[in-house]
Design a protein around this nucleic acid. Structure first.
Length: 269
DNA sequence: ACCCAGGACCCTG
DNA sequence: CAGGGTCATGGG
């Protein structure tokens, strides 16, 4: 079906979002963007002048939500511009149009379990292989499908390494109902975080990513090797704990957006 | 050959 | 609770 979404001016840039490291199934082919999330699909073009997305997809409600189209990112930007943070302001200038996507929860869980101690191109390859092998078309493999794969097969040719065991384990638990991923959908970040981190293979960083990209807890603030580098090099006047206090006090309710701007900017410098 | 990548686990002190 | 070794894998 035909899907049109309007954005406020300068609050949506698919190239920025696609390359921001928050999503692994968002690509560009000949001026057209192709996005998949869970079992949903969309292909679209975007006109910067009219700020309008025009596409063809399966579920308009899902995709409006996916792009967080109701949120007011201009308001977040105003707060950032008023603060005296040179690095963050530069980050904003260089990543205008960033948004935090609301991605399929199961896919987000598995994707970020794969992401640990890994790099983005290889994460994408592993995910692509799982889809090719264990699902139809461009749908993300279900827990049931993954739970039926023998562990040695799951390790073979997927580049998953030791992470295959984590994926196999959570898939089996979800398939038999021992884990219901809807239970991760809590009102507060901390409640979701505590439940996620109890799962084997999900630590602090991955839990933050799942909270942010899969549950849209905007106070999530994932700290990976790049963010550590930023804190060391660009906020050297802070200890890490003081730095986190600064972030939480200054950008309460949209820390995850701030982190995404910083991460994208640092990686593209 | 080392070092790194959107780290987590497990054991020690 | 903090620190360090270990865990697969491909690319630089």
């Amino acid at each position: 079906m035909k899907i049109d979404i309007d954005f406020a001016p300068h609050t949506f840039d698919p190239d920025v979002i696609m390359n921001s490291g928050q999503v692994f199934r968002f690509e560009k082919k000949e001026n057209e963007y192709i996005v998949n999330s869970g079992n949903h699909n969309l292909r679209f073009t975007y006109d910067d002048l009219s700020s309008q997305l025009q596409g063809d997809g399966d579920d308009e409600a899902f995709w409006r939500e996916y792009f967080d189209s109701d949120a007011d990112y201009a308001m977040y930007n105003d707060v950032i511009k008023k603060n005296d943070d040179k690095f963050l302001k530069s980050a904003l200038d260089n990543s205008l149009g960033m948004r935090i996507l609301r991605q399929d929860l199961w896919e987000t869980i598995i994707s970020y379990m794969i992401s640990q101690n890994n790099n983005i191109p290889k994460i994408k390859k592993s995910i692509g292989i799982l889809i090719d092998r264990y699902s139809d078309a461009d749908e993300f493999p279900t827990a049931e499908a993954l739970s039926n794969v023998p562990l040695d097969e799951l390790k073979q040719g997927t580049m998953l390494g030791y992470r295959a065991e984590y994926i196999s384990e959570i898939s089996k638990k979800v398939a038999v109902g021992e884990i219901n991923i809807d239970d991760f959908k809590c009102d507060k970040f901390q409640e979701s975080y505590d439940k996620l981190i109890a799962v084997k293979g999900i630590g602090p960083k991955v839990a933050n990513c799942i909270c942010l990209y899969g549950l849209h807890h905007m106070s999530g603030y994932p700290i990976d090797t790049w963010m550590k580098k930023i804190i060391e090099e660009d906020y050297s006047n802070y200890e890490q704990k003081e730095y986190m206090n600064y972030i939480n006090e200054s950008y309460s309710g949209f820390q995850g957006y701030v982190q995404q701007l910083q991460f994208y900017y640092k990686r593209n410098q």
